[in-house]
Design a protein around this nucleic acid. Structure first.
Lengths: 225, 225
DNA sequence: ACCTGAACACCGTTCAAGT
DNA sequence: ACCTGAACACCGTTCAAGT
């Protein structure tokens, strides 16, 4: 009976007490904005506004926009699932890349962001290491593996970015589609014949297929001369 | 003797007579800026300044920045060399992609621009058609070919963009390099062992190798189920 | 050390007014 | 029809001044 009940008036405040700034809090706010407003909302001023402060305050924690973006990317890369130890190396590599792709796809604008930044945070390192391990397990030569990591990550990021461009930008795919449908069999016979296939099935099938293509290519390749 | 000699004073003016605006002239100006100042200089206001006018004038010819960028891209794609009719299809496809890569590489910031726009101008169509022709010549299935076009173009663009990021941004590669050199053999054994290879030889060898990888993968693949 | 308002030098886009 | 200055609503980054 000694306990004083919490004063509900405090927790009823429409705005919670302003939490202190930190790299973590800023990244969190940026992530929330990315989800709600897409890449366009990801400005210093806008992120600062959500934290009830001015843009200048963010410069205490990040030297510039690039650095904040890199931190944001590494933060979401923590969600990438590294495959278990057992099983075929190809399947596991594929799983890893699909997980990576899924993380980029899950948040609007994230893939575009990943394309324009060079991530090299701790979670990127984890992922690179895992890909290297799987490739060397598969007997891929050292140089091929080293170059392959870069290639695989870049490639999956590009696929995600392109799909995002197609799905979010109404302009994008529609314009390509209308251009393709206007193509004549005389001028561009192959385009004309395959124009249906070129736009079709922009979903998981297509990205899985694309990942298969590059893994096939990599494992077929001997180290560069 | 009736002819009046041209008044040289006119042609001696330090600034040539202001040429009339046109889509062509605007794209030309944008291209010149891209070469001199990189992607950062490619703003409506800056392009307009080079043409001795205000940004508003450009909106007579282009609905927005995206449209101007697309026109700029298609303009440079006219330089892509389509391979001759004779010869092995793989070699010809490789030549085409290397030419495409070279065009993107030749101008600072162009590859980044290509990644963020969806080009669908006449020169893109020419290139797509040619790739389709080569792939079907190589016996690649219809659906694989249709998806492959997208994939190949995207892939080569990404490679060019990444190389540009590494070469122009001093920050970029240097940061990755310093992160990699700080990696310990205990935490990340594979990264540690291959860290030298991962940064090495970011030149034509690497992009040609990357192009080989994907062509191998594509030609090994049967059409998706 | 951390935070901030104000300032500087920029953006894309629109629009009323001119030719 | 084409062109334009001015305005609107934004940017990133810096810096002197506050705590």
């Amino acid at each position: 009976m000694n306990q004083v009940p919490p004063r509900t008036i405090v927790s009823r405040r429409s705005r919670p007490a302003k939490s202190p700034l930190s790299r973590e809090a800023i990244v969190e706010a940026a992530l929330a904005i990315l989800e709600q407003q897409g890449e366009g909302g990801l400005s210093m001023r806008n992120i600062a506004k959500r934290l009830d402060t001015g843009a200048a305050s963010l410069y205490v924690y990040f030297a510039n926009t690039d650095e904040l973006h890199a931190a944001l990317l590494d933060h979401v890369f923590s969600e990438v699932v590294l495959p278990a130890q057992q099983g075929n190396w190809r399947d596991r590599l594929k799983d890893l890349l699909i997980s990576y792709h899924g993380v980029l796809e899950a948040r609007r604008g994230l893939a575009q962001l990943a394309l324009s930044s060079i991530a090299s945070g701790p979670n990127s390192l984890r992922i690179w290491e895992c890909i290297l391990r799987l490739l060397s397990e598969g007997g891929v030569g050292a140089t091929t593996a080293a170059w392959g990591v870069d290639l695989l990550v870049l490639y999956v990021t590009s696929i995600a970015a392109e799909q995002a461009l197609h799905t979010t930008d109404d302009r994008g795919l529609t314009r390509v589609a209308s251009v393709l449908s206007a193509v004549t069999a005389d001028e561009f016979p192959h385009l004309h014949r395959l124009r249906g296939d070129m736009i079709s099935d922009d979903g998981p099938n297509r990205s899985q297929w694309a990942i298969d293509v590059i893994i096939d290519g990599l494992s077929a390749r001997s180290p560069p001369a």
